[in-house]
Simulated assay, not measured.
Amino acid sequence: MTYALVLHGGAGARPGTDYTVQKADLAKLIETGQSMLVQGQSALDVVTWAIEALEASGLYVAGKGSAPHSMGGFELDASIMHGPNRRAGAVAAIEGIKSPIQAARAVLEDGRHVMLAGTGAQIAAKAAGLAEVLDPQDYYSEHVSHGSSESADHGTVGAVALDIHGELAAGTSTGGTFNKLIGRVGDTPIIGSGTWADDTVAVSCTGLGEAFIRTATAYDVSARMRYGNVALDQATRQVLDEVARFDGDGGLIAIDAQGNISMPYNSDGMKRAAVSDRMSPVVRVFEPED
């Protein structure tokens, strides 16, 4: 019974900052997610559940913990993708909705479009019955301990999963960079840049979004594996080298169809957790990968 699950809470971890609370949260989620996969739940459902929990915690710069933009408001992004049939859904610059990943899932399930933005995304989310944010200034809890500041560009959460049915899924959600220009959209809601899943690999990225957009990072992992017969870990490290060429840093999490896991980063650290049928749960921030 092969399965795997990886979560990330952003590649903006700063040396000297205490992430005990975030690590405890990731540990709880990875163990619960493991149980869900063992019980036969789908990768798509587990990814959606895990990211919604990360959003709701207020411990990361996504969902409740989102950072304000240059005019003081909150525009959030998210995307999700199901590997077997490449169904995908995304929302960009959405306001007033508690769970952007659920809004993205609603777009996926509706099936008419892949991405909705701004007011259209909000209308669709409301039509789907998703919970609304009635008082944004009171609800959102971004603060410096999340790893966000005026110089930080890494405030994303994500999940990738392989279920016991052999299906892969990936999702990503963010509140964006601190003090970003209103209307700015990073890589998170862009299928192929911030999120990708097919029958080869599932990928979720975190870092300087503009660099990840320029390199189509998430899709490039799959392309290197499929066209170049490159192993998962080599492919993920190669694409991060490409991101660095464009003055970007960050990291990504990935699982291939055989249940192999990769969690590389080229920033100071990345909050992450992983488990599989071959590996007990691990939670790391600054520890390098083998």
Rank of each mutant, 00 (worst) to 15 (best):
243 V>N: 02
239 V>M: 14
36 M>P: 06
266 N>R: 06
153 D>S: 05
54 L>D: 08
276 S>T: 08
259 G>A: 08
116 L>K: 05
40 G>A: 13
57 S>Q: 13
168 L>A: 11
51 I>Q: 15
228 G>E: 10
157 V>E: 13
63 G>D: 08
97 I>K: 06
96 G>S: 06
100 P>K: 04
23 K>R: 15
64 K>A: 15
232 L>D: 00
40 G>E: 05
9 G>T: 12
45 D>P: 13
28 K>W: 07
226 R>K: 12
222 S>Q: 05
138 D>A: 08
82 H>W: 08
149 S>Y: 06
214 R>P: 09
99 S>W: 08
148 S>D: 03
43 A>P: 14
59 L>R: 14
43 A>C: 06
112 R>I: 11
84 P>R: 00
170 A>T: 14
191 I>G: 13
136 P>F: 03
131 A>G: 04
145 S>G: 09
215 T>S: 13
206 T>N: 12
121 A>P: 02
182 I>R: 12
168 L>P: 11
200 T>I: 12
155 G>T: 08
38 V>L: 12
149 S>T: 07
8 H>N: 10
263 M>H: 02
99 S>V: 07
151 S>V: 06
1 M>A: 13
161 A>D: 05
70 S>P: 02
33 G>P: 14
224 R>S: 02
204 S>G: 15
278 R>S: 14
279 M>Q: 14
107 V>C: 05
21 V>C: 07
173 S>R: 01
175 G>Y: 05
91 V>K: 03
242 E>R: 14
132 E>D: 01
194 G>C: 10
289 E>G: 03
118 G>H: 03
22 Q>A: 15
229 N>V: 04
76 L>H: 00
6 V>H: 07
127 A>S: 10
78 A>V: 03
80 I>F: 01
